[in-house]
């Protein structure tokens, strides 16, 4: 088990189920783990293992039946809806498998949508450079490839300079090469800006680039380990 002394994000006895009676399905059955500040943490597991539900609960867009989450000492369960929205606004960045960009805003403006929410946003032009989108800044989402759109969605999340960057299968809809590029970008941001990254994936290979790997199965933590031989995203193979 990994050391918990520097924990930034703490998950304790988290339980969640859906449905009632016969159709009731326990998705999370008592999860415990912590993530340290600035860590690149991968939640790994097959589909149905509860990883996305877990991510949604961490992100404050879903609630647990039992247990709690605390971020930097603040317990989410003690917050009302407004406070949770404020928490998301100030501390979280989200990247989804689908990019969910706003179709009638251009690349730069889509990133500004993220910047608007932050009290200390990063420089939008710098982000565009880092993401390799400088030349595409005035293009609309439907003029971009899937990989480019995902870059924009990363830009939108990162520009807030969030404490935690939540990534839900960010490469799920991308090809091998593009996936690696995207992972490298996330890695780069993690390193450069020191955000804690929590990434959900079913891709075994990705665990190798993480600081901290948590394996889930049937709603339980099966393995919680530090990655000693971390390799750069560019060197990943699958």
């Amino acid at each position: 088990m990994a050391g918990e002394s520097t924990s930034f994000l703490e998950i304790r006895n988290l339980k969640k189920s859906f449905g009632k009676g016969e159709t009731r399905q326990e998705v999370l059955r008592g999860m415990d783990f912590s993530v340290a500040k600035g860590e690149f943490c991968v939640l790994l597991g097959p589909s149905g293992s509860g990883k996305s539900t877990l991510l949604n609960i961490i992100g404050g867009i879903d609630t647990p039946d039992e247990g709690y989450i605390s971020i930097n000492g603040d317990k989410l369960e003690e917050m009302d809806e407004k406070a949770i929205t404020l928490y998301r606004r100030k501390h979280l960045g989200y990247v989804f498998q689908m990019y969910n960009l706003i179709p009638n805003l251009n690349v730069k403006e889509n990133i500004e949508v993220g910047a608007y929410l932050s009290d200390n946003p990063l420089d939008v032009d710098e982000i565009l450079d880092i993401l390799g989108l400088a030349d595409h800044r005035y293009k609309y989402p439907n003029q971009l490839s899937g990989g480019q759109q995902q870059r924009v969605s990363i830009g939108r999340a990162v520009v807030k300079n969030p404490d935690i960057l939540m990534c839900d299968e960010p490469t799920g809809a991308l090809d091998y090469k593009t996936s690696k590029e995207i992972l490298a970008l996330i890695e780069n941001c993690n390193r450069k800006y020191g955000n804690t990254v929590v990434m959900v994936t079913h891709n075994e290979a990705i665990r190798r680039m993480a600081d901290h790997v948590i394996r889930l199965r049937d709603g339980m933590v099966r393995q919680n380990e530090r990655n000693i031989e971390k390799i750069p995203a560019a060197e990943l193979e699958w």
Partner: peptide
């Protein structure tokens, strides 16, 4: 139509 975008924006911290 923009349901996913709205979900993303709300998840990112845009208020209702």
């Amino acid at each position: 139509k923009e349901s996913a975008v709205i979900g993303t924006l709300r998840a990112s911290g845009y208020t209702r």
